[in-house]
Design a protein around this nucleic acid. Structure first.
Length: 185
DNA sequence: CAATGTTTAGGCTGCT
DNA sequence: AGCAGCCTAAACATTG
């Protein structure tokens, strides 16, 4: 099984879907959430193939972000202004890839319409204030699958995975908090 | 205005 | 053949 590594692929197209590449990028970030431009950067830093034809693949990537329910937009905090939201993974979508492989998804992650409707009003609220972060619960270790292409590390590697981004990015009654086994306590 | 985000549409491939 | 997952193009809206 091919795995992304420092010297893999070169100019060849990596065997990962945009969904996989985006999930890698998001999950390798400290807060498990990234703005669009950082997702682009992660991918083109690691996979030289994506240093070309940027208009094409970035359009596809944006399509995937909006189209797939597994990606969720988190509004910026008012004190961190900027263009565009942060993107994260839906907690229920973390087992989308068979046995940790990012090559092919088991099944498309699709929310029921009723779930979407329930989520929508909450996502429109302005982000609220902080509370102590729930402690990490391992679920998905993409870090073990990826290493940066250039000889440098973007993040310290043994990062404990947490299912949720830090709560201060999320509205107080965000469903994700409830979805998190520790946040519910 | 350029970057970001949403949506529709068509094509390709592998699987059953 | 039909379906599911994926890729690409493109029109269009929103936002900083």
């Amino acid at each position: 099984m091919p795995r992304p590594s420092r010297e893999s692929y070169g100019d060849q197209k990596p065997p990962y879907s945009y969904i996989s590449l985006t999930a890698m990028a998001i999950w390798s970030s400290p807060d498990k959430m990234l703005p669009l431009s950082d997702i682009y950067k992660f991918i083109s830093d690691r996979f030289p193939y994506y240093r070309r034809n940027t208009q094409r693949w970035q359009n596809s990537l944006r399509h995937n972000l909006s189209f797939n329910d597994c990606f969720v937009k988190i509004p910026r905090r008012p004190d961190r202004p900027g263009k565009g939201a942060y993107w994260t993974l839906h907690p229920a979508a973390l087992d989308m890839f068979e046995n940790g492989s990012l090559l092919r998804r088991r099944k498309r992650f699709k929310l029921l319409k009723s779930d979407k409707d329930r989520l929508a009003p909450v996502m429109d609220q302005a982000p609220t204030t902080a509370s102590p972060p729930p402690r990490p619960k391992r679920s998905f270790d993409i870090e073990s699958l990826i290493s940066p292409e250039p000889p440098r590390r973007l993040h310290p590697l043994p990062v404990p995975c947490c299912v949720l981004p830090p709560p201060y990015y999320l509205p107080q009654h965000h469903p994700y908090r409830l979805a998190h086994p520790l946040a519910a306590v």
